[in-house]
Design a protein around this nucleic acid. Structure first.
Lengths: 254, 254
DNA sequence: CCAAAAGTGTTCTTTATACACCCATGT
DNA sequence: ACATGGGTGTATAAAGAACACTTTTGG
């Protein structure tokens, strides 16, 4: 007997794969595990695995992520499915791709460990992944999908901050925007968009309230031991954000 | 013997469901089929069904759509998954939701017919669906997801035109935007955004080229037998669109 | 003539873009 | 002092919002 579960019609296996993006202060990287077993033994793959019958897809993704990497407590968002007929040499497998975000501190955590199915784990620059690093299965496509989902949500939701520690500099924030949107921004204008333009602020006091305010708040703290003028640390101000959204949509893009 | 397909671990059944949005010139509606069989016999459900082992999810969605409604040749986009454990009373079923768009002419087509599993089909106003019409399974959630995917893509891609016939009036286009984004627009400003501002056009001739041009082209034809000034028919100009996108992103929103 | 909806113009506010300038730190 | 990067100011262009005006049809 082949197995214990019988069905009238053939069913594909269903898996989830997690694309974990991490920002190390300079680059956006993706977390991979080196496969311990065939197929694609020794190749880099996304953490993920088979859905159990009593869980939802998101629960599956969360569980597999913990099992294979130890990562817990981050929000996972769905980005799409992979269903090419020949995508897994073993059997017919359909996979749902989730993505999650980690800050510099999160990336450094000692809690990240390669699980049972994995020999080790590795962070790879997302740009290297997208320009052809060889991965197991169709996981390059998965990263491409997740990266697009992430970029798309950047202008609608405050997702960039999930890639940052609670305190961060404007420079770091700008770096994330530049990587995800694949373009550069004027330093001065980016600053004003995010923290608010002091010039407009003065006008605000005179007239009734206009628009323009940023969504970052100065913490008062600054970077230490820099070779130049120290950068201020900011925090994302949820209250300001909600207030602005009530008046009208705040556009995070340009 | 229960069935002929045996697996070591239990597998959920995998289905696709299609949310077909149609614009009738005034409202955006969603296509449902009345179920011929249990469960949810007699209730309204989205067209869809079980994935076959040798096809991709998108192929499955296309096939099921033809089988159950006769609709063919429209683009389907993925919007998300449904995987609650109790979502189907028969067995564990995970479903992938696709959505497609139909123009007024498409909606009226004689080719739309209820398939074998369906007693009949019915178009229902999307607002009624979202405000609580009772549907089979968790299909209300499916419509909600699809509607959000559609709204989100509206500002990035020229999807609104897939809800319109080749020729259409600005009024119709504006109606679609208003329904999908759940807000109103100033008639005059909407017009200028889409066809281009004649005032700016004059300036363009003088100075070097600035920005601002619309993506619609006047066909020269007008509506007949109106009780007022006849509206012009326009077409979406792919060439203009591509040209604008090369300079920089054209924002379809406001 | 009037009503109704289409289309154009005009003005003002808000954003976007470019770039010049000043500031604080380590060497 | 100066190199380096952080932060502010200012001017211009483009886009958004509000609303008045004009045009074309049917009655």
């Amino acid at each position: 007997m082949e197995g214990s579960y019988n069905y009238k019609y053939p069913r594909p296996a269903l898996t989830t794969d997690c694309v974990i993006f991490g920002f190390d202060g300079d680059k956006v990287k993706v977390l991979f595990v080196k496969r311990r077993d065939e197929p694609f033994k020794g190749k880099l793959a996304l953490p993920g695995g088979f859905m159990e019958i009593g869980e939802t897809l998101e629960e599956c993704a969360k569980r597999e992520l913990v099992e294979e990497t130890g990562i817990e407590g981050i929000k996972l968002r769905e980005s799409g499915t992979l269903s090419d007929v020949e995508r897994d040499p073993r059997t017919r497998v359909v996979s749902v791709v989730y993505y999650g975000l980690m800050s510099p501190n999160g990336m450094m955590s000692e809690d990240i460990v390669a699980g049972s199915d994995a020999e080790s784990f590795k962070w790879i620059d997302v740009n290297d992944v997208l320009s052809g690093t060889k991965l197991a299965f169709d996981h390059e496509k998965a990263v491409r999908m997740a990266f697009k989902s992430l970029s798309d949500s950047l202008n609608r939701e405050p997702v960039a901050f999930e890639l940052l520690d609670e305190r961060f500099t404007i420079k770091q924030l700008q770096r994330i925007y530049e990587i995800l949107l694949d373009r550069t921004f004027d330093r001065a204008n980016f600053h004003k968009k995010m923290v608010g333009d002091p010039a407009s602020a003065k006008k605000l006091k005179k007239n009734g309230r206009k628009k323009n305010t940023g969504i970052l708040t100065d913490t008062g703290e600054v970077m230490k031991e820099t070779k130049h003028k120290p950068a201020k640390y900011y925090v994302f101000d949820w209250q300001k954000y909600k207030d602005l959204m009530e008046i009208e949509d705040f556009n995070f893009g340009f």
